[in-house]
Structure formats: C-alpha cells, structure tokens
Design a protein around this nucleic acid. Structure first.
Lengths: 154, 154
DNA sequence: ATCGATGCAAAAGTTTTGCATATAC
DNA sequence: GTATATGCAAAACTTTTGCATCGAT
C-alpha cells in the first residue's frame, strides 16, 4: 500500500477552503465521506462508502444521493479520483497521495498498486508529442494475480 | 487513426471458428455487431451499436439484449475490448488491430490513439515483477487537446 | 429435430432529480 | 434570515434475466 503524503488535517483544511471559496457549506456528511475515503485507503463504490459510514456511525443521517453528490464534488476538486473496473460502476479512491497506477486481477478483483518512474516520464513525453496538456492519466494492467494463478493452475 | 492489421474477412473467419468450437451459432445479428464495430473504427456504447445497426439496416430484427450478449462474447474472445470514459458506461472498440492507447480530451471528448513501445515493454516488466499474468492493459492520458487549448486560451 | 439464439418485457441495479425540510452561515 | 444541503422517494438510465418463439445446424 502506498503511503499518504498529506495528513488528514491538511486534507480537511483544503476541503474546507474549497467549500468556502465556492460558497458551499461544510456539513457533517461531507466531512464523513472525505474521512472514510482518506482513512480506508482503497477503492470504493458510492454504495461501499454509504455502507461504511452507516456501519461506523449508525446514528448519522445519510442518504445515498448525498454520497453521489459529494463524490462528484470531490472528484471535480481532484481530492478523489475514480476508476472503472470490469462491468460494475466506478470506484473512488483518495487522490492526493503520491500518484500510482493499478494492477487489476480479473479473477478475484484484487487491486495492487504500483509506481513506475519510467512510465510517468514516458507519459509526459507522449502528451508533449501530441500537443496535449496532460492533467492526469490512468494506467491499468489487467490480468491474473499470483494467488489466482495458483488456485486455477492456469 | 491506427490502421487495421486484419482484413474483415479474416476477422469474420476467426469469429466463425470461435463460434463453432464453442458450439455456438453463427447468426445475422452476431455478424452485424462484429461488422459495425470493425468498420466504424471508434468507441461505442452498447446502445450506440444498437442504434447504428438499426439505422444501417432498418429491417433487421434486433434487441438490445442481443447486443449486450454479443459484446460480452466478443470481449471474452478478445475480438473487442472495452474501456470506460468519464461517467457513462463502457465503450467497446475493435480489439484485434495493433495495440494502442488513448489520449482523451476532457473538454471536447476527442480521443486520439498512440502506440508507444517503451510503455508496452515497461508494462510487461511491471507485470512480471508483481507476478501478474498480464492479459491486457489500459492506459489513458487525460488532458486538453491542442484545439481546445487554442480555443480557451488556457 | 434439436439446441442454442433471439426479442420482448420484466426485473435488477445504478445514478440522478424534485421537493419539502433541515442546517450552515 | 437566507441560501444551500439533505433525505427521501420517484424517475431515469443501464444492464441482466426469464421465457416463448425462431432459426442455425
């Protein structure tokens, strides 16, 4: 697992500033959604996030619509990023850590992360070559993870 | 646009063999779906494909369910590949051409394709390092294309 | 003639929206 | 007090499934 480079307080602060500068309000729901994504490092669907919050804070009022709305907000602000796996919908993850890419197992759905400098550099080079102003990139290596290869004896 | 390396007849032949070897039947619907994806080089949702076929062949009987079922089949056979962009569902494209990756413009949605040997090789290296058996990969560079940079004066 | 494929419509999921109420500011 | 956010439920989509019928072999 790749470590966070920002402390939660810094992230929260950034989020609060973002809200203020857009005349948006700081609510308990919005904070909880950010907190869950930051603290449970991993990839979650909106429903996952909804369930995690309900489980951790049984008394909080929360609707799934708020989760969708907040994730959209956080994604626009580049605080979270989304990625699509297989046939199911988008999954979100915290997006202010060190940049990393993904290895996705088609059998068990496991996601491993990696950082590779050669690829990072080459992407910048390609963007430049095509006159693209790169804002982000996604790279997924899809295949069968070590464990599933053993299980299935492929 | 990257040119196809296989003629349509070769692809169709491959598809027919695949069907036969799995005790599946060769139907007009299945052929049309393959043909549309092959001939309209690009990225299509299942609904796009359904509409394209209905428009090109108004008299054909075709249900959206068949499109979904056939795309699943073609994807399993590696004849088409799918990729997710933004918030909308999966898009499919013909997958037997030379492998290529994508530059996606967030402003106008334009998709450019590129091939880069350095990245191809590095991906194999990373998969090996993580004991992954790579079956495919996806790489998208997201940003603002040349035209949109000019328009917006960014 | 057989067995898989199809279309249709219903069902299952997922995401978005409208609106009255609640809450941050 | 005002404007935005929320929860809920309905609506809008997207994808899958069951089943009677059709069609390829």
């Amino acid at each position: 697992m790749i470590s966070q480079t920002l402390k939660y307080e810094e992230v929260l602060d950034r989020f609060k500033k973002l809200l203020k500068s857009n005349n948006l309000k700081y609510t308990k729901q919005r904070e909880l959604i950010l907190e869950i994504i930051y603290k449970n490092h991993g990839h979650f669907t909106p429903e996952d996030i909804y369930n995690l919050i309900k489980k951790s804070y049984p008394n909080i009022q929360l609707g799934i619509a708020t989760v969708y709305r907040t994730l959209t907000l956080l994604e626009e602000a580049n605080i979270v990023t989304s990625i699509s796996f297989g046939t199911k919908g988008k999954k979100y993850e915290f997006g202010l850590g060190e940049h990393h890419d993904h290895l996705v197992c088609v059998v068990c759905g496991a996601i491993e992360e990696f950082i590779d400098e050669t690829i990072e550099r080459q992407q910048e080079f390609i963007a430049k070559k095509h006159n693209f102003k790169m804002t982000s990139h996604i790279m997924k290596i899809i295949g069968v993870c070590k464990d599933c290869q053993l299980k299935k004896g492929s």
